[in-house]
Nucleic acid binder design. Structure first.
Lengths: 197, 197
DNA sequence: GTCTATACAGCGATAGAC
DNA sequence: GTCTATCGCTGTATAGAC
């Protein structure tokens, strides 16, 4: 007989890799069970339906996301605002290139959100936090007088939009110079509002 | 007995609305057939499988997209470059707000593309055309000497990325001032390279 | 040529045995 | 805690009605 926690963990991990590879609908519970070496109804002991398994997996990866987007604003000073913004993008681009499976799965939840308010609400929170990250960075830059206080809200939303879509485009295998595009976005947004040089 | 073309058209139209509403996998051929008032195997007379129906629908909507993205560059002159770019975005934002079903469906094909090269290749072409549209606009602006020739390629890719993600965000019901974000993107990108004022 | 009837394997899900 | 057996449904396939 198996260990309960171990089996639960195995189901979540196998679901993660199979769902991200083939999608929710093209991955049957039988195939997940077969991969682990248990029977299909055994999964029902841990999750009361396939949808519940998908939701549990969602909650697992949401926690991971929130740990990635953290940025230490204390490191920011008058001379390194641009560099700090550059790095945020470069780190994310590198992370994304190495974690395609993660975003492949995440995008499926975004699609689910258009039809299921459970996901819509949680994803809205994540998006809001994501926007706040950029808004906090620019607001902080204003406070330390590195940049002028002009359209900071819209500018941070613009940066967030570019940032977000870069990760999407990496997924589609479009071969663009994402680092340069990100730097151009940062340069464009800051142009004219930087204090002295 | 039914008319052949009429039935075909009905299947495509019903598939469009049901697929965009509930998704490919949550829409059975039986439910499509029931909606039209024919039997399930009747669909197999027109499409040799569900996947074939999905592909045919794809080809139908691809044609529509290519007619939307057309922009008349002859209208552009030294004084209206910014306004022309503003309008491209505003038109798309309005179009998107009124055609959510269309993009809902389109996004499903983007997800399919990560696992099926048939869609990946065609979508790559569309994306390329999409990038070209912005590149052509900026190149044209350079040629009529409305703007300087600085980083035109990266700048057009940046605009395309923002443009594309605005339509995605509208779909997620995130309530942002997209017109203002788009104008900020255009302003930011053109800032410093506009000739005289 | 246009479609219906029927059959089948595989799915998510449940009941009940061990 | 995990299994076998079974249910209703799906996509798919084909035989054949008209």
């Amino acid at each position: 007989m198996r260990n309960k926690e171990e089996t639960y963990k195995q189901i979540i991990e196998t679901a993660f890799s199979m769902f991200s590879e083939k999608g929710f609908d093209q991955t049957s519970l039988s195939s997940i069970a077969a991969e682990i070496g248990i029977s299909k109804p055994a999964i029902y002991y841990y999750f009361k339906s396939k949808d519940e398994l998908i939701k549990s997996l969602f909650d697992t990866i949401v926690q991971e996301i929130q740990s990635i987007t953290y940025i230490d604003l204390k490191e920011m000073n008058t001379t390194n605002v641009k560099q700090t913004l550059y790095h945020v993008g470069e780190n994310a681009i590198n992370h994304q290139k190495k974690n395609l499976a993660f975003n492949q799965l995440f995008n499926q939840y975004i699609m689910l959100a258009t039809r299921d308010s459970y996901y819509a609400e949680k994803l809205a929170d994540i998006q809001q936090e994501f926007f706040n990250t950029f808004h906090d960075m620019l607001t902080n830059a204003v406070e330390i007088k590195a940049i002028k206080d002009e359209n900071i809200l819209i500018k941070s939303q613009l940066l967030a939009l570019v940032f977000d879509n870069i990760t999407n485009f990496i997924l589609t295998n479009m071969n663009l110079d994402y680092e340069r595009i990100w730097r151009e976005a940062v340069d464009s947004v800051l142009r004219g509002i930087e204090n002295h040089e």
